[in-house]
Design a protein around this nucleic acid. Structure first.
Lengths: 293, 293
DNA sequence: AGTTCTCTGGAATTTTTTTTCTATTTTTGA
DNA sequence: TCAAAAATAGAAAAAAAATTCCAGAGAACT
């Protein structure tokens, strides 16, 4: 009986199973086939589930695991579980990597390494955004934008960046757009004129800014719709939002990334422009530099 | 206590949790947050896993499930399990849909498809950013940021978003930071005090904004350094920049992305923070959601 | 401050699941 | 075909996990 590797990947395990397949007794062959075919659900299966699927007795499944050097079925299942939880949270992985890097284990990590790591992290962040993309919510959000008479956008602190982008982009449409920036503390005044048929786009993340909440309340009061972009359905504003889009951002140094939010905001605008058959021409190389004041 | 539906989707369940969230006691809130954030791993989690993650007693997790009408945790977990085993199959469909969309370029692509495509585009944009990463330039840029007495940041129109982010981030250091936003057309005045030992971060893309160029000229005149973030070495400001970082942004549907620039700005800040051994406190995973900041 | 109600956490209990044990069956090879 | 070895199935034991119970802490209300 060979010693089980402390860590072995699912693929390696499947390899070993395939290699040993011919020399297995009938029932264990059956188990082997099941596992090979259903590797993605082994992690949630119970011994009895697999046994049933294979028309085999539970103990056969345990024997199977043991014949590959595991102490029992649970031990083998662990391989599948950890594989899943790791791939389910690529961002977590990345965060640990960068934390280790920064954590000073390697004081010799160069500044450029940190930069590179960060970019990598953002990449896997976008992977997650793509994976958790919610088409229905997205379409609803675009609808709201299209129908709105005037669009108010609010976001404070971290979210201000995204808010200001959205306003910039929306100004390319014929919509009336207002950035609620609280200049001079005048949040209330800036959203004061919101009304029925208007839309408030509120962007807010964990410690959910008070100002944004106030704006949302005012919008609701004036019977305007709300498009909420936030990190969780449990966000304090979620309940009153007309439509909600969630974005998960990784963080480094407690500094949350912004890439996903920005990307989503841009996607919203692009989709809207697509619907409006707006053609945003690429700035031409020779176009004279304009000055607006 | 309402009867659990024979079949309820994960989304519906999350919705119900979100709706009830406010009325939950502290610990159950914590569990709710965990489940909402980790819905994809709930199916493999044990009661004790979740309890541990939430710093909560196992019985709280069971109570949570029961408060939503399930007989216990296992009953609730079933919802997540079945959802998973069902969606395991259609994954291939999605791949095909994407392929069709890309192949077809069809006019009847849905709004959501456009959004998805944009996200995909941003992903490959980041791939390119990673590939063309210039370690030496990056290190030099961080050096400039570290050495600067006061940091002025300027960017107009599209670039304003990135500029405002950078300022927001830099405010978490002890540096003096000024966002040159041209409020009231006062670009000149805002950079008027720049001097030797100071740094101007100029972010500019085609069609290079006149305002940014003016600021750069003033900075040079006052013997300040310049960190230029732009799209090409041939950018009009390139010649006079102390250090230059180039960022290529892809464009989807004729609209330039911003993800790369944002990502680079964030990377700069993170690297700088690393050098400063700045530790910005991480919001704690289980921290109850607060109504204020 | 006192009362009532809810929430919490530890331990006990129950249920479920895994593993071991062993008698029986099947296969293998002379 | 028979003996030896291997494989299997069921039951029983063990382990793990989930659930309940309850006493005490804490909040809310009077």
């Amino acid at each position: 009986m060979d010693t089980p590797m402390p860590t072995i990947s699912v693929d390696e395990l499947i390899q070993r199973i395939a290699a040993a397949y011919d020399s297995l007794p009938r029932q264990l062959k059956s188990v082997a086939t099941y596992i090979e075919q259903h590797r993605s659900s082994v992690m949630v299966d119970r011994v009895s589930d697999i046994a049933a699927h294979c028309n085999v007795h539970a103990s056969a499944v345990v024997r199977f695991a043991q014949s590959f050097g595991f102490s029992g079925f649970s031990d083998m299942q662990e391989v599948f579980r950890t594989a899943y939880t790791q791939q389910a949270a690529p961002t977590q992985n990345y965060q640990q990597r960068i934390r280790n890097l920064i954590g000073g284990k390697s004081k010799n990590a160069s500044v450029a390494d940190v930069g590179r790591e960060f970019i990598d992290g953002s990449r896997s962040g976008l992977d997650e955004l793509a994976a958790s993309f919610d088409p229905a919510g997205f379409e609803a959000a675009v609808e709201l934008l299209l129908k709105a008479k005037t669009i108010y956008v609010v976001g404070v602190r971290r979210s201000f960046t995204s808010a200001s982008y959205l306003v910039y982009a929306l100004q390319h449409t014929t919509k009336h757009v207002v950035l609620v920036n609280g200049l001079g503390g005048m949040y209330r005044d800036q959203v004061g004129n919101i009304g029925k048929g208007d839309l408030l786009v509120a962007i807010t993340f964990l410690p959910y800014g008070r100002e944004t909440q106030v704006c949302a309340r005012i919008a609701r009061h004036h019977h305007a719709s709300t498009l909420l972009i936030t990190d969780s359905q449990l966000s304090p504003l979620a309940r009153h939002a007309t439509t909600l889009l969630t974005v998960k951002e990784g963080s480094v140094f407690g500094f949350r990334s912004l890439t996903n939010t920005m990307c989503l905001c841009q996607a919203l605008f692009i989709a809207m422009a697509y619907k409006l058959e707006l053609s945003i021409e690429e700035p031409k190389p020779n176009r004279p530099i304009e000055e607006h004041d």
